[in-house]
Amino acid sequence: MNKQEAILEYTLRIADDSLLLGHRISEWCGHGPILEEDIALTNIALDLIGQATNFFDYAAKVQGEGKTCDDLAFLRLEREYKNVLLVEQKNGHFGDTIARQFFFDVFRKLFFESLSKSTDQDLAAIAEKSLKETRYHLKHSSEWIIRLGDGTQESHDKIQGSVDYLWKFTDELFFMDQVDELLIKENIAVDLTALKANWKSYISEIFQEATLNIPTNGWQQAGGRKGLHSEHMGYALAELQYMQRAYPNMQW
């Protein structure tokens, strides 16, 4: 694997995370728990779709085959999508969505803080822009974790259930392989092992205020970064790709 291939793979991982989570959050539009929150969630979806577009644009440029951001977003096979399993999980109830978002936001904020210092100017610039959005997402999800955790007994039990269920997908956020190793040497990629302690301590802090427990079961699921997804992924892609597959090679 050369440097260019590594940057392409690395960028697609980031783009796919944003795309799939943006896809999931956009499913809330029109169905939120209250009008104000409907609007808030859609803003988050919009940010994520915007980030995906920027990262795909860059990936297409790195690839140099004349493809567009849409070719990459819509026309790959399931195995070629490299998002973590966490972001493709179904929305479930509002608590499931918030827990998924919270785990991801904490990671993403730390990640973009570091990536904005990357020696790759393009990645650094997109990370910088995305960081502002992510800080807001994190504020939003943190506040909701606290409200739901320290709200009613019902909400407490529900959000604890969401946390317990989704916990097994969180380790994959820190997945690294030779792609990362190669790029870390060049100061392009972020060393994710360095983020983990901060990720965990932020979560502990918010959970404490929310009267929630960090799950003790350490068994983890992974596969997304290698293109091995959950059963939900195929359905998500079926929707996402519907138009491009049914009507190939057209302008919209």
């Binding site: 995906a52 977003a73 929707e239």
Partner: peptide, 10 residues
């Protein structure tokens, strides 16, 4: 979720 491209989706 079925918009044909990223611009239209946004």
């Amino acid at each position: 979720t079925r918009a044909p491209n990223l611009r239209r989706k946004a």
